[in-house]
Amino acid sequence: MSRREQFWVITSNHLIEGDAIWLNNSGDWTRKLGEAKLFDDRDSAETALMTADKERHIHVGAYLAAARPGRDQKPEPQHVREQIRTTGPSNYFHGKQATASDVSV
């Protein structure tokens, strides 16, 4: 994929639960990658990351993760690591795949 076609999401871990969360269109955090805001240029993603990083008592260690638009333009993980964060470990049915991921952040 060329550089121009690169998309990004902002992701982090929840302070108390420690699970993966993503920044959505309204600037809040969500537990579903599908609801995350998809950035199509790195600069605006970096700017949003800096603002997101202010609420330090909700999340830990936010960063940009590469993503791609999937069905209905919803973000999908591009890297196996982000895939695993989105679903949970492959050895047990634990983590996001097992919990109701609409639990709000």
Partner: peptide, 21 residues
């Protein structure tokens, strides 16, 4: 802050991993 807390939690064996602590 997390910068302040991280070394303290690590001193007590607490890591933050992909899905949880």
């Amino acid at each position: 802050t997390e910068e302040e807390f991280k070394p303290l939690r690590l001193k007590n064996g607490l890591y933050l991993q992909l899905h949880a602590y």
